[in-house]
Every structure is written in C-alpha cells, then in structure tokens.
C-alpha cells in the first residue's frame, strides 16, 4: 500500500504512471544499461580502450551531473520506487499455479527488487551519487571508489576488493539482464505490440535472444572487472599517461583532472589492495 499522502495521486494517475514505468524501463534505463554493459565489456580490449570509452562520456564536462541525474538516476529511481509500489500491489501464487509465465511474473518482481537494490548500492559504491569532495571523503572506503580518469584500475580494485562484492556484482548483473529481457516481452504486451499467443511466442524468442546476448555481454563485463588478472601498475601508468597527454593537449584542465584521478596519496594504498586481491586469485 502506498502511503496515505501519496495514495490519491498514485491512484489517480495509475494508468499514466504504469505506462511511464513500463517505458522508462526500456528508455532510458534499459538502453543506458545496454550501453553501460557494452562500454564495460571493452575492458577486455585493454585499460586504454576502456579509458577512452569512459573519457567519451566524461567529455560532457560540467553538464555531466545534469545528464546523469535527468537521464539516468531519476529514471532509475522512478522505475525502481514505482516498481516497489507495483510489487506491493500483487500477491505471487506460484505454489498453486506453477505456470512458466507465472514463475516469470514472480522472477520479474524479484529481479527488479534485486536490481534496484544493486543499482542503488552500485552507484554509491562506484560513483558516490554526489560530486562533492567533503561527501567523498566522508564515504571513503565504502563508496565513490571509481575515478573516471583511472577508470580500469579503480573499477577493478573496487570490484575485486572482496568475494562478496564480486558476487554482488554477478547477481546484480544477472538480475538486471533478466529484468530487462523479460521486461521487453511484457512491455510488448502492455503496449499491445504482440497480441496473439503466436505473436507472444515469437516475441518471447526475440526477448530471450536479446537477454542471452545481453547476459553474455554483461558477464563479459563482470568478468572483465571481477576475474581479469592484470598488471595494475602498468595500467595505472597508462591511465596517467593518457591524463597527462590530455592536459598537454588542452582537452582538460589540471583542476578538472584533479577530481577525476586517483589522489596521489591514495595511489599506493589502492594499488596495494589490488595486489592483495590478485594474490588471492
């Protein structure tokens, strides 16, 4: 049940909200996720390639937070929070009715919940949610571990920090991919793209294929950070070389770079962590 204050609004605009929820799952949330997973999978082409891909995104400069919030964070928050409202409106009954579609109904909700919690934590873990140096200092050690100009090394270090974190990322990626692929199928019904059982069966194959490909990419990306063994010092050196080159070329300023690269005093410690983890595996 929604809270008393929000109930009338949620009830009054139920159709619009549900359709927006359905739409937001595909665009921008789903679409962003696809791009994100593909970008991350480029880690296998080396830290340099990955760094260039990240730089592309970060070339937006000061507008980036605005874009992030408007097109990624807010839609995800809406999709996730309204998703919770939807989950609370139903009552799974797989015990009595173990049909395939009914299992998927429950899985869609379970995966949605997992994906939402995962994303909330993932953004915190990597990004820190807010670009504020005091905030970042405050959460140091548990969040905001990703430094865009040292993309490969900081991300790898963050994910390989423990078995739990690696596992969390695995579960998170799988949940996100299932949720999107299954969501594409249900979305087509909701909006009336596939209506007959035959059309729905075909759409199921399409959505399933999309899911399989996406799962491949997702797991590739996951493995790229969670399992890939690499020479982190060499990668860090490469990243720093790119930064220096960009400063020299005037593409970025020293000040900008300062926020987005690993602080000097931190360099060693994070490298140490990386080494320990690598030593374990």
């Amino acid at each position: 049940m929604a809270t008393k204050l929000s109930a009338p609004f949620l009830v009054r605009h139920e159709f619009l909200l549900r359709r927006l929820h359905s739409l937001s799952g595909l665009v921008p949330v789903g679409a962003y996720m696809v791009v994100h997973l593909i970008t991350n999978a480029t880690i296998w082409s080396g830290a340099g390639t990955f760094q260039r891909a990240v730089n592309q995104i970060h070339s937006l400069g000061p507008v980036l937070p605005l874009v992030e919030w408007a097109f990624i964070f807010l839609p995800i928050l809406f999709h996730g929070l309204y998703g919770i409202v939807i989950i609370r409106s139903g009552l799974p009954n797989n015990g009595s009715y173990s049909y395939f579609t009914n299992i998927r109904y429950t899985l869609q909700r379970a995966s949605g919940l997992i994906a939402f919690l995962f994303i909330m934590w993932h953004v915190f873990h990597m990004h820190g949610w807010i670009h504020n140096s005091q905030w970042r200092e405050f959460i140091e050690g548990i969040g905001g571990k990703f430094f865009p100009f040292n993309a490969a090394t900081t991300a790898t270090d963050a994910i390989q920090a423990s078995f739990l974190i690696r596992a969390a990322y695995f579960v998170g990626v799988v949940a996100c991919v299932f949720h999107l692929a299954n969501g594409i199928w249900t979305m087509g019904i909701t909006w009336g793209l596939w209506t007959t059982p035959e059309a729905q069966r075909k759409a199921n194959c399409v959505a399933g294929s999309i899911g399989a490909v996406l799962l491949g990419i997702g797991l590739l990306a996951w493995a790229g950070f969670a399992l890939r063994s690499s020479d982190s010092d060499a990668e860090r050196a490469l990243e720093n070389k790119i930064i220096d080159a960009r400063i020299e070329a005037g593409q970025i300023t020293e000040g900008e770079a300062k926020h987005k690269r690993v602080p000097t005093e931190k360099k060693r410690s994070s490298a140490d962590v990386g080494e320990t983890v690598l030593g374990e595996t």
């Binding site: 049909y99 579609t101 009914n102 109904y105």
Partner: peptide, 18 residues
C-alpha cells in the same frame, strides 16, 4: 484506463491457463 484498469495487469497469464 481509470484506476483499477488494464494497467494493473502483471502479465502472469494465469488467467488464460485456468
């Protein structure tokens, strides 16, 4: 499209099965 309308459907598709 009013409250309680088609949007509530969760596509579990049990209806058609039973």
């Amino acid at each position: 499209m009013a409250p309680g309308g088609i949007q509530v459907c969760g596509n579990a598709q049990n209806c058609v099965a039973v």
